[in-house]
Design a protein around this nucleic acid. Structure first.
Lengths: 179, 179
DNA sequence: CGCCTGCTGCGTCATTCTGTCGCAGCAGGC
DNA sequence: GCCTGCTGCGACAGAATGACGCAGCAGGCG
């Protein structure tokens, strides 16, 4: 039976490229660029798997996880984001996502999640790294954690970190460094 | 009723410092530096909370999560590691850890996890830490820890941190910033 | 003992980042 | 409608960084 995958990303080009790659690998694919559109699509045809970006214009992909699981409790949600952080990874998994990846990532890694058997706890992918985080990456993770605790309030986060708001905004606007 | 916290880290100095900080905040604390010792301690006195490092000599702290939850199903496990990655964060939460933090982190963030009400899925996490580390202080402590692990070798530390050696030397030459 | 490798301290320069200032618009509360 | 706080962002002076590289030292090895 063909798995139906719903791809949710605010970038139509990204949706098209990923959809094509998944179709080529035998999946039935649909896509959405907005939160409401995604939920409507899921209700119309409950997906077996979802690829979910976190930046969806003004809303956060995190807020879609529970509604998606309400509609399709067995579906596997792979979170994919260009602004990956440990804080949002922890929250996504607790909300019920199956996996969380930083962009860019190979399509094979995504489909491996779809095809994995139930309860694959010992995936081995969670090797503890041998290198510590770089200073830039540690800063990014720290900022993201404090921002998360302040519920996205940039002014409050800047005050808590004793950093100028302008500087914080510049840092947040950049893609995070590779670990 | 006093919460009993088990601190598991291979660095005895870190154990002592964190144990003292937690004792000062009203917790009953015990600690272990090895996996087997940790499990024995947990069986002897099932903890209400655990602070768990991932690097435990030759073994991984990830492998302790399930056994610890078998012994004390309700306990909250906070993973704390100097070698953080999104992949191990995902795996830790799936294995049943309550939270995952990169070192260094303020003690308040750890105890906020212990004290949070059940099922705090939304981002507020019960309470916002009053005073997170500033970015400068975070960087200083991270550098010091990695330098210590490289036994004072500045060149190796710079490589591990992916930082230019000149820059590291300038940073080390400065007084550490106030938190 | 000379050679080699790696570590270390440090000056210099072009580039990048930061702190500061502040404008303008939006949202929410009263 | 007013006020407060948040937000995005441009511009500028000063600080920091990455890069380069010199010079000296220590330890290992033949």
């Amino acid at each position: 039976m063909t798995i139906h995958v719903l791809v949710i990303d605010d970038d139509p080009t990204f949706n098209a490229v990923l959809s094509r790659a998944l179709t080529r690998r035998g999946y039935a694919v649909s896509s959405a660029t907005k939160a409401e559109q995604a939920l409507s699509a899921a209700r119309a045809q409950p997906p077996g798997a979802v690829v979910l970006d976190l930046n969806l214009g003004s809303s956060s992909g995190l807020q879609l996880i529970r509604p998606l699981l309400d509609i399709a409790p067995e579906c596997r949600i792979v979170v994919l984001t260009g602004y990956a952080s440990i804080a949002t990874a922890v929250e996504a998994i607790k909300l019920g996502a199956t996996q969380y990846f930083a962009k860019p990532i190979e399509v094979e890694a995504i489909v491996a999640v779809f095809d994995a058997p139930e309860e694959f706890e010992e995936a081995g992918e969670g090797e503890v790294p041998s290198d510590p985080l770089s200073v830039g990456r540690l800063e990014w993770e720290h900022i993201q954690r404090v921002l998360h605790e302040h519920e996205g309030n940039i002014s409050a986060t800047a005050r808590a970190l004793k950093m100028h708001r302008r500087t914080l905004q510049r840092k947040l606007a950049k893609r995070p460094l590779k670990a």
